[in-house]
Simulated assay, not measured.
Amino acid sequence: MNTDIQARASRFNVFPATEYDQYVAGHSQATPYHSSAWLQATESAYGHTCWLITVHHNGSLCGVLPLVKVKSPIGAGSLVSLPFCDLGGVLADNAEIRERLIAEAKALARTNRIKIMETRESGAALETEQTTDALPAHTKVRMLCELPENSEALFKSYKPKLRSQIRKAQKNGLRAELLTEPDAVNLFYDVFSQNMRRLGSPVHSLQWFKDLKAAYGDHLLISVVFQGDKPVGAGIVLLGGKQACIPWASTLEEFNRLAPNMLLYWTLLSHVCDLGYTLFDFGRSTLGEGTYRFKKQWGAEPYRLVWTEYHSGEQNPTGLDTSGNGATRASRLRPVIENIWRRLPLPFANWLGPKLRRYITL
């Protein structure tokens, strides 16, 4: 290997964030999640330790790997790039730099006696025939949509049925607002926390979203759909480079007949399109399931998600499907746990959820 290449592991809070963000902004594979803002919020909201693996060549930054040491109530936890989202992983100038970053990350894991390191990266687009019988059931994919020059062209690209569904929400008296002030997080969380309890899943803390908004600033957009003065739908979009991604969106089930989700997504898509963003990341979905079909109707196409675990330094694909005995046992227990969670009073669910959610890296 080139001896002029210097690799090191640094605590996130001591590495120059400006240098890191400048490199991320100039890398073609970067996502909004790679921003230092994600690491900043992860540390401040949940107290996890964040690391940066970096490589310099002749003094210039030429590769980065952001990692979060996710604590565990039992054991040493894990190193993840990145937790609470679909993506993260290596950004490097070339394959040699990539190898150095992974090697340094393994060394960091050994030093801290952490047995599991995980990277989450995007792969190639799936061919049409690969989205049916060629892939295992429950395969997870990233749904990406290329955006045209403006929202008018985007609307014209939709099928008549989709256009009518967007208009339906408006005819039903719903209105959507794009909000930038920090207090908008409370409106989002009101909808989001109710929906997560309905789904039977522990919710992120309100502080997590407040810290994300503080860290991302104008690069975090919040859209809220109202019926009168009541929030019935809400979503968050993160911006970076020419890419926009939507990690969270929720609607209240009792209002779904009014199509708030259609107005919510259209409001965000049209806005980022007119801002000049060229790619919209709808996030992770399971092939063939409801959310996959919902995102596909907006023009999104599936891309592989390459999640790789390193157990004590040895590479092991995580396999983003639910095959295997352990997964089968978990799938059997899941409906029981979800049913119990749905019965919790909302204030209690919102208190208990974040205490568990901070350890769940998905």
Results as ranks from 00 to 15, higher is better:
Leu108Asp: 00
Gln207Leu: 12
Arg163Pro: 13
Asp183Arg: 08
Ile97Gln: 07
Leu212Ser: 09
Arg284Gly: 10
Leu287Asp: 11
Tyr292Ala: 02
Gly47Met: 03
His204Gln: 09
Leu101Pro: 02
Lys230Thr: 13
Tyr216Arg: 09
Leu174Asp: 05
Lys106Leu: 09
Leu178Lys: 05
Leu147Ile: 06
Glu177Asn: 11
Arg110Asn: 12
Thr128Leu: 12
Gly77Pro: 00
Gln243Lys: 11
Ala124Glu: 08
Phe282Leu: 02
Lys156Ser: 10
Gln170Met: 15
Asn150Met: 08
Lys156Arg: 11
Trp38Thr: 09
Val141Asn: 03
Arg334Glu: 10
Leu52Gln: 14
Asn339Tyr: 14
Leu352Ile: 09
Glu152Gly: 15
Thr139Gln: 04
Tyr20Thr: 03
Lys106Ser: 10
Ser201Val: 15
Arg357Tyr: 10
Asp229Thr: 14
Pro202Val: 02
Ser312Leu: 09
Asp93Met: 08
Leu287Gly: 08
Cys273Val: 06
His219Gly: 12
Ser331Tyr: 15
Asn339Gln: 15
Arg343Thr: 13
Arg110Ile: 08
Gly123Asn: 05
Ser223Pro: 00
Gly89Glu: 07
Asp211Ala: 10
Asp190Thr: 14
Arg197Trp: 10
Cys245Glu: 09
Ile246Asn: 04
Glu301Cys: 02
Asp190Asn: 11
Ser151Thr: 04
Arg167Lys: 13
Ser201Thr: 15
Leu154Gly: 00
Ile74His: 13
Gly233Thr: 10
Gly200Ile: 15
Ala215Tyr: 00
Val68Arg: 00
Thr318Ser: 07
Leu252Met: 11
Gly290Leu: 03
His271Tyr: 14
Asn186Lys: 06
Gly290Pro: 06
Phe209Ile: 08
His219Pro: 05
Ile166Ala: 07
Ala124Asn: 10
Asn350Lys: 10
Ala349Gly: 05
Gly319Glu: 09
Ser270Pro: 15
Arg120Val: 02
Ile337Asn: 04
Ala169Glu: 01
Ser157Cys: 11
His204Leu: 02
Gly276Pro: 14
Gln165Tyr: 04
Phe255Gly: 05
Leu126Ala: 02
Phe255Glu: 06
Thr308Lys: 15
Gln227Met: 03
Val141Ala: 00
Leu333Ile: 07
Phe226Asp: 07
Gly240Asp: 08
Leu238Gly: 00
Phe294Asn: 03
Gly77Asp: 04
Ala234His: 10
Gln170Leu: 14
Met117Thr: 09
Pro202Phe: 00
Arg167Ile: 08
Ser36Val: 06
Asn195Tyr: 07
Ser122Tyr: 04
Ser223Arg: 06
Ile222Phe: 05
Arg100Trp: 10
Gln194Cys: 12
Glu301Thr: 11
Leu91Met: 09
Pro182His: 03
Ala259Ile: 03
Tyr277His: 09
Val55Tyr: 00
Val90Ser: 00
Val80Gly: 01
Val55Asp: 01
Arg342Thr: 13
Asn195Phe: 08
Ile246Gln: 05
Trp341Ile: 12
Phe280Val: 13
Phe192Pro: 05
Ser157Glu: 05
Ala134Trp: 06
Arg342Met: 04
Phe209Leu: 09
Asn256Arg: 15
Cys145Phe: 03
Thr111Cys: 00
Gln227Tyr: 14
Leu199Glu: 07
Val14Ile: 15
Gln165Pro: 01
Ser28Ala: 14
Glu254Ile: 08
